[in-house]
Design a protein around this nucleic acid. Sequence first.
DNA 1: TATGAATGAGGCTTCATTCAT
DNA 2: GATGAATGAAGCCTCATTCAT
Lengths: 187, 187, 187, 187
Amino acid sequence: MRPQKLSREQILNACALQFKRYGYAGTSMEMLAKACGLTKASFYYYYPSKEALLLDVLELTQHYLNSHLFKLNENTQISAAEYFDQMHTRAVQFFSYEVKGCLVGMLSLEARYHSADLLDKIRAIFQHWEMAFYQLFRLQLQEDEAKILAKQSVADYEGAILMYRLNDDLFYLDQVKQRILKQLTAA
Amino acid sequence: MRPQKLSREQILNACALQFKRYGYAGTSMEMLAKACGLTKASFYYYYPSKEALLLDVLELTQHYLNSHLFKLNENTQISAAEYFDQMHTRAVQFFSYEVKGCLVGMLSLEARYHSADLLDKIRAIFQHWEMAFYQLFRLQLQEDEAKILAKQSVADYEGAILMYRLNDDLFYLDQVKQRILKQLTAA
Amino acid sequence: MRPQKLSREQILNACALQFKRYGYAGTSMEMLAKACGLTKASFYYYYPSKEALLLDVLELTQHYLNSHLFKLNENTQISAAEYFDQMHTRAVQFFSYEVKGCLVGMLSLEARYHSADLLDKIRAIFQHWEMAFYQLFRLQLQEDEAKILAKQSVADYEGAILMYRLNDDLFYLDQVKQRILKQLTAA
Amino acid sequence: MRPQKLSREQILNACALQFKRYGYAGTSMEMLAKACGLTKASFYYYYPSKEALLLDVLELTQHYLNSHLFKLNENTQISAAEYFDQMHTRAVQFFSYEVKGCLVGMLSLEARYHSADLLDKIRAIFQHWEMAFYQLFRLQLQEDEAKILAKQSVADYEGAILMYRLNDDLFYLDQVKQRILKQLTAA
DNA sequence: TATGAATGAGGCTTCATTCAT
DNA sequence: GATGAATGAAGCCTCATTCAT
């Protein structure tokens, strides 16, 4: 009776939203199935377990981030600051889409005492983000400065998103942007 | 009457650690009871529900933070920078005690779609922290600057703690400190 | 899909018997599940809560009573007394089936301090019974007499069933019948 | 800190009310203790178990009924009808005191599949009531008639009380009275 | 593919009862 | 006498998962 079959990607996206909203422990397979317009049993046709699903959700998230947020378009003419500005806009969109917050940051807290696979994946995603920042900042800054700012920026974003989620206030994300821009243009 | 195995405060502290480690949804009453050396049923002698317990845990946390971390000793001779330095040291200790991380930050993510009471309490705690920062920063900075820096600093700490928890790397917390100190001494 | 062990109606009937035997508070979900040949968890596939189940049990009981006991076959040639005699026989069967007693009467005692929904449903069932009596008695009696006798008869039956259940003695039910018949034939 | 120690009888009376209101299964030891102004543990000083308490409650009820409701004052000058009238008034008071209903009738339903002791006690109480009616009715009626009317009257009262409790309507009890009076005065 | 049906394990909570002072 | 503290068992319900069609 369902309108149409969902693609693997649509399922993962729907599940990502549930996880982002309620966390891993707070999301049941029932909720995930319903979010996909499937029955619980049907849902198991696509995914054999909650953990497997989560890993795939993160995999997709990683791909998405790598191709949409972290990938630097090298043959561009705009400045590092301008580039970062666009990057920030896309980041804010990503962290505001449907549910405010950062799925990966959230899972990082829950996953700390779970499986090693999960931790590795989460760390990898943050690493890629840091690397993306590094390459961008390197256009303007010294190696050391770029390195530190990249590492710091990831943390800054996570803190800002946490407060954004809690207080519904974009101030935090805007401050992060201003601060990074200042360092990029000051150089 | 049989003597109490643990005092109310000891129970709350033990539970705080469990919540900090596994989150609210990820912690079962069984785990909490065991962490207190009690059976599940005995545990209910102290707390009528998981939610009530959580609120008391947060209450205690708030009291602790207000009296140990957020309270400014006014009749002191040291500078704002020195004062902040000590404050930071205590904060790092607090966020490293037994389990790395920030209970309140963690709960803020889970609580977003839970009870309003919980959200209010969490917001209040962050507010107090911000206010403490503000009063301290005000010693050196203009009202506007102090205000912004205070708000930003809370977010910065949360981001740093998140990454500290994930990567076991104190770099993040140290950077936060340096950055704030720079603004305090530059003025 | 695996075939259902028991139909919805079979489940409700099995549960009705449990409730009739042990009352609402005295019947556990485990008992109900076992009475249906299901595990506790499987039982929840059919009913989300004990209260919801009870309401459905009463709904089914009401339907059964309305169609088997309370419904008057209008185009019949027999007298009111004869009709009542048959009605009584069916009533005795109903109150003796598997477990002696009246589920609704029993629940009426327990429900007095429970949910309003429950009370309403119970009152409605008794109302329907009274109405059935009224229509039947009206064939022979004045409006006022019929009204009073109908109201009284429901109470009489309940008292008789209570004593029947306690003492295993059909005398009580037989007396109720005789008394009503006397009023119907005396007119 | 309690105002004053409760007598055994006060405790039993307080418990009787709880049982009358919520039934045996629906009343917890906690509720009983609180109704007596005692803590749960203190309550066990008086009663070793819920079942033992219940039996004592019934014992007291039996004593009360035997001496206040069932005992016929033989050296009186009034007629059987007048005597019954007074008896009825006391009965209505008894079944209306604090909580509408008949504890024994209620327990008879719950107890049917419990301990034999309980059943015996309940049957004995109803027997005594029946005997009291018999002796009274015998003043006016033939042995057979008195016997039947006595047995029937107990059931009638129980039915009337059940409906009185459910519908808050004294009509039922009044009808029982009228009916019995008619038989007493018709003779 | 899809899903109605089923389930063991576990989660939150209450209960009747006991312990130890 | 009295009660704070403790507990095993049970009660209601949810969860992740499997079965069988």
